[in-house]
């Protein structure tokens, strides 16, 4: 294809890809709800750098909704954790233009990933766990989030550069 797809179609593709990635990841056994890589986020990042913040917000929220409906966790505690993390991450992405320096997918991804984890843990503490012990584990979870953020950022970068190569569009961030 030589022409860029319409923005709303691209959002739909990215959201679909994100949901697919989310479900694929859910099939992998993990020691706990905190130990996920969150590959679906790379598509949110692509949307952010390619189409802007509102597109990223849409992709992220659609992924949370559709993903939970398909996995059968809609309105469950997991769903609220997911949602709170996603909302936090999206809000933080909105602050990116305010930064005094330019950031690319890696930086935004790490930032969003850390915020996502903090929001999840706070909501989990508030709604589910109800005792302070969870905060003992938080530093270690955050270190994990830092690395998964890095990974997702790199993957998003790779996708974005290939998108640019194929669509011969001006990609600037």
């Amino acid at each position: 294809m030589n022409r860029a797809p319409r923005p709303d179609l691209l959002i739909a593709y990215l959201a679909a890809a994100a949901v697919a990635a989310h479900i694929l990841e859910a099939a992998i056994p993990a020691p706990g709800p905190w130990f996920k890589i969150g590959l679906a986020n790379m598509f949110t990042l692509v949307a952010f750098f390619h189409l802007g913040w509102s597109a990223a917000a849409l992709v992220s929220l659609m992924r949370v909704m559709a993903g939970s409906l398909l996995l059968g966790t809609f309105l469950s505690p997991t769903f609220f954790l997911s949602l709170s993390g996603a909302i936090g991450a999206v809000l933080v992405m909105g602050l990116v233009p305010l930064l005094p320096f330019r950031v690319g997918p890696v930086g935004v991804s790490i930032l969003a990933s850390l915020t996502h984890m903090v929001c999840q843990v706070v909501v989990a503490w508030w709604l589910i766990i109800g005792h302070d012990g969870i905060f003992l584990a938080l530093p270690w979870f955050l270190i994990g989030s830092w690395f998964t953020g890095l990974l997702n950022g790199l993957l998003a970068y790779l996708i974005l550069t290939r998108l640019a190569a194929h669509q011969s569009m001006n990609l600037q961030w």
Binding site: L95, L98, L99, P100, T115, V118, F135
Partner: peptide
Amino acid sequence: NLVGSILLGALLYAAFFTG
């Protein structure tokens, strides 16, 4: 940028330490 930096700093501080 200044507003953003302050906000970012505050957010990070709040999230990591207050939590």
